[in-house]
């Protein structure tokens, strides 16, 4: 099986086991450049595991993964891979001992070997993009959840990735902050950044998704455009899931 031509991200029969528990079961998915794909599914269905496999924070056990046409294996240069694929964690995981600016400038300085001034200028640019530049000198503990989320996004953007992975970026946010994150994602996609986002927020999903991937028990059940998924899901499991979410 070969990666689809033009796909920035190609997943083929990808499986991940934790001992004898199958967390991901033969996942296949192609994502085009600049596309926004939202992954939905009940808790424990393997959404986070999938995202973590994509930048090899978790190595997969079988199947193949291609990014920009390059096959990702144990021998792949992880540092280059991670510069290509940014990840924003569900609970942000900002570095508490660094202020906002240093949080963002650390990886460019260490990984890209940028001089401090240049790394900070870069960081300021992305902090401005997510509208948080005013807090650059504050420490994470002094920020609200929504502000931390935006810093986490800026920190990942500072490595100027081509693919951004988001694990429940809206989990702890109020509706206003959620729409802020949606705006940022649309901006990023407009710049040609490919987005894969896990969420439980249905309105958010419908608002940003080009396609919805629905997962259950480590498997992809269906891949559909949002309009169709929310009105007319193809699988029984997706129907039940939607009913539960609305209820």
């Amino acid at each position: 099986m070969h990666p689809e031509p033009g796909a920035v991200l190609s997943i083929r029969n990808l499986s991940k086991l934790y001992k004898d528990f199958t967390a991901l079961d033969r996942i296949s998915l192609d994502v085009r450049r600049g596309e926004k794909v939202v992954v939905l599914g009940p808790s424990g269905s393997g959404k986070s595991t999938l995202i973590r496999c994509l930048n090899r924070i978790e190595p997969h056990d079988s199947g193949s993964l291609h990014i920009n046409g390059q096959t990702i294996t144990a021998r792949t240069d992880l540092i280059r891979l991670r510069a290509l694929v940014g990840l924003v964690f569900q609970n942000y995981n900002l570095f508490p001992h660094l202020n906002v600016l240093d949080n963002c400038a650390l990886a460019p300085r260490l990984v890209r070997k940028m001089p401090r001034a240049q790394a900070e200028a870069l960081a300021m640019r992305f902090l401005q993009q997510v509208n948080i530049a005013g807090q650059a000198r504050k420490y994470p503990i002094q920020l609200s959840g929504g502000q931390q989320q935006r810093v986490a996004i800026a920190r990942a953007l500072c490595m100027q990735p081509e693919i951004m992975l988001f694990d429940e970026p809206t989990a702890a946010l109020d509706p206003e902050a959620v729409s802020g994150v949606a705006t940022i994602m649309n901006d990023l996609a407009a710049q040609g950044i490919t987005i894969l986002c896990v969420t439980h927020e249905m309105r958010f999903a419908r608002h940003i998704a080009d396609r919805i991937v629905f997962m259950d028990q480590g498997r992809i059940m269906e891949i559909t455009p949002p309009g169709q998924f929310f009105t007319n899901p193809q699988t029984r499991r997706a129907q039940d899931f939607l009913n539960q979410m609305i209820a």
């Binding site: 930048n55 924070i57 540092i79 991670r82 990840l87 964690f89 995981n93 990984v111 920190r155």
Partner: peptide, 26 residues
């Protein structure tokens, strides 16, 4: 928090850099 190391790795930091800049200061 072990998630701190994961966050460092996800940004492309090496093991040594993660210890030096993320884990040790905390």
């Amino acid at each position: 928090d072990p998630a701190q190391a994961v966050a460092g790795h996800a940004l492309g930091l090496s093991r040594g850099q993660v210890y030096r800049h993320v884990i040790f200061p905390q």
